[in-house]
């Protein structure tokens, strides 16, 4: 801060301070649906202890949490509910997509499964694995904290954009897996 009280330097610093505070006080909402939910439980429990990284207090209410950990499959019946929960969370909010099913559909490229939850909610960090080991999720959490500190998440982009919406990321509409006509999977060997 300069002596005449000019605000330029100060605001930048404030943003950093706020981001520092945000990254160290994440309130995760465990959206555990299947196998990854069990590993998420292991990450939260003793042994791995996610509390060490500032994500201690697990909230089951979307109103009280700012980190949505989508652990496990989100199928087409569940997708609107996930979106509902995401919309109920207060900004700034972040999303970790844990596991292959949530990130891309994984091995389940079938009629009932969302091919990645990024078709439903904007995702900040993808954690690969089926399910990821607790170490993997912790690494994802640390990556998210770095991103928050640098202000590179969807939530930050939303705050900076004039209409308050995240500019759509240039993701391909349909993944390369779907390039061949669907339904021709039937193996005729």
């Amino acid at each position: 801060m300069s002596k005449d009280g000019s605000a330029d330097f100060f605001t930048t610093k404030l943003e950093n301070v706020v981001n520092w505070a945000r990254k160290n006080s994440l309130y995760p909402l465990p959206f555990g649906t299947s196998c990854c939910g069990i590993e998420l439980m292991a990450t939260l429990a003793s042994g791995y202890d996610m509390a060490r990284f500032g994500a201690e207090v697990v909230r089951f209410s979307p109103r009280q949490s700012d980190l949505l950990v989508v652990a496990g499959i989100v199928n087409l019946k569940m997708a609107p509910i996930l979106r509902n929960i995401y919309d109920q969370m207060a900004d700034p909010k972040w999303v970790i997509s844990m596991g292959a099913c949530a990130s891309s559909g994984g091995i389940f490229n079938v009629y009932s499964v969302t091919q990645g939850i990024d078709t439903v909610v904007p995702v900040d960090v993808y954690v690969p694995g089926c399910p990821p080991a607790p170490e993997g999720l912790l690494n994802g959490l640390l990556r998210l904290e770095d991103m928050i500190a640098r202000g590179e998440t969807h939530a930050h982009r939303r705050m900076k954009s004039p209409d308050g919406k995240t500019p759509p990321t240039p993701l391909p509409a349909v993944s390369s897996m779907d390039a061949h006509p669907r339904g021709s999977e039937q193996r005729k060997v």
């Binding site: 009629y111 009932s112 999977e185």
Partner: peptide, 26 residues
């Protein structure tokens, strides 16, 4: 198992493996 608004019956042999049907509301 499927949504009440689903059309078709997935385990019939003529239903495509990837016959997605998307609903925007719960």
């Amino acid at each position: 198992l499927m949504d009440q608004r689903w059309e078709g019956h997935p385990l019939r042999k003529d239903y495509p493996l990837r016959g997605y049907q998307i609903f925007l509301s719960p």
